[in-house]
Design a protein around this nucleic acid. Structure first.
Ligand code: MN
Ligand code: MN
Ligand code: ZN
Ligand code: ZN
Lengths: 141, 141
DNA sequence: TCCATATCTGTAATCATTTCAATTGTAAAA
DNA sequence: TTTTACAATTGAAATGATTACAGATATGGA
């Protein structure tokens, strides 16, 4: 609730007018940390903001990405996900439970020969597999 | 042309009946090395195989992926691309010319934290930026 | 308050992908 | 060789995600 104040000024700082919908969508990203799809955001917020339009969710996320306060995560080709953490970090998707985990990695000492003279703007590392929790469950079965 | 023989037996080996369309699509992937979209494959092959259906391209790529002889590359959320090189390797996409470059990297150098006990099945490293060629062109302007 | 502009909304259009049923091709049995 | 069963291909229709658009609503300053 009081978060609204912080988020409001954060959006202003990013050059975004802090409308009610924009604040709630950004707040959703920050609080849930779930790398959601548009559908997830829309469904979850719709119970709280019944007048919300899915178009607004699309528009708002596009704005966030354009203004550089959100990044697109494309681990699967059939679902676009969004992440308010714009730092370079990795994503692990569990193919069993579907959860997405953040992790850190070094990209400094990669010194890749084939693209030495290329100008790097974004680095995305995606790993798929089985999370620790699911591994345990599967062993028990 | 004589490739057909090799590709045919390669497909058989992978448990895939080597139909004319399947051979041509796999041959396309191998020869072009362009990480194409379905649309690219369809358009390029259609002039050579006028009866080709886009559905066949979809079906065939799905089959290749299921049988493990092709991997899906999702650098952008709005274009699914295909790669017959199923080894773990990185992809660089130039945001200027759109070209996709392969590069090799060593997982060990990534020094990944937080997912030590997770079971890794696939690793995808995608980098976006400007390729060497485009960098030169842009400087000249 | 009033006005100009930005934002939001719902619907329609677009585009990629999947589903489906009919047709065609293939490979082995008769 | 002909028949037969099954696999692959095809094109049309359905689905689902995203975008375009135009009208309604909200906002902030004169
Ligand atoms: Mn993240
Ligand atoms: Mn590749
Ligand atoms: Zn899991
Ligand atoms: Zn380039």
């Amino acid at each position: 609730m009081e978060q609204t104040q912080n988020i409001g000024s954060f959006l202003i700082n990013a050059g975004i007018r802090p409308s009610f919908q924009r604040i709630k969508i950004y707040e959703y990203l920050i609080i849930r940390k779930n790398h959601p799809t548009v559908e997830m955001i829309y469904k979850d917020l719709n119970s709280y903001i019944p007048t919300l339009s899915k178009t607004t969710v699309y528009n708002t996320l596009k704005l966030f990405v354009d203004k550089g306060i959100t990044q697109i995560i494309t681990i699967e080709d059939n679902e676009t996900r969004y992440d308010p953490d714009i730092s370079t970090h990795g994503h692990f998707k569990c193919t069993n439970c579907g959860k997405i985990f953040d992790f850190s990695f070094d990209n400094k000492n990669l010194n890749i020969k084939q693209i030495e003279n290329f100008e790097i703007k974004q680095t995305h590392l995606y790993i798929k597999g089985i999370c620790e929790n699911c591994k345990r469950k599967i062993i028990i079965k």
